[in-house]
Amino acid sequence: MDVLWLGVLALLLIGYFALEGFDIGLGVLLPVLGRTQEDRDRIVAAMAPFVLANEVWLVAAAGVLAGAFPSLEERVTAEGYPAVVALLLSWILRDAGLWFRRRLDGRAWRAGWDRVICAASLGLALSWGMVSAALAGLPGSPIGLSGLVCGALLAALFAFHGRTFVSWRLPGRVTGAHRGTRALLVSACAAAAPAAVAVAASAPWLLRHAAPAETLSVLSLIILPFTPVMVGAQVWVWRTFGPRRGADRVPSFF
């Protein structure tokens, strides 16, 4: 049972990096790929229908931590307190930027929130680097050189993934490049690789610190029947908003 829940945690974290990775990457690249306001609008519109379905993977992973691995939740937050606070602040500011940028007409309003999205996306990548450095026990973590190096590496991976995504969804429109589904899968694997390594490295520790069997049975009994619905909802998002369905035609809410 504990192996099963370790698998669920791994899947959710890998899924988060593979999916939310391109949102963070496009946020970081927003001023680079989007020189004009119209270009930035197009980039945000390209990722907008996916953001809500992507970021919930981390919320779900945090839920699994709380339910099945409460000791790891304690370790992450104890060793990486400032990094987790930075992560949360970046996350809420990035999301606020997306929700708010089109709610007023003025150009200064939208351009201002676009700057917030870019800075907060960079903050997300850097704080993930700091959290990873703290968990790996690197010297000088969480706030220090090792964390910054990890963060910069993650930012570069996410940027590569974001660039591939936008060239897949709006081929030739933003980057001038055309990318197929296979290229997107490759960049998703690259973005998710750090999460896979981290879970694999901490698997023995996690298995020793899982919640007791009573709790895991209850979680399995209630949550596992819903997995087809959860998978189905995610597949539905990708089928609805894929590049063949006139990705650029409907005005975006974000």
Partner: peptide, 12 residues
């Protein structure tokens, strides 16, 4: 855990 996976994940 049930809330995040069964409810919020789907809601969002």
């Amino acid at each position: 855990a049930i809330e995040t996976l069964v409810a919020f994940f789907l809601e969002s």
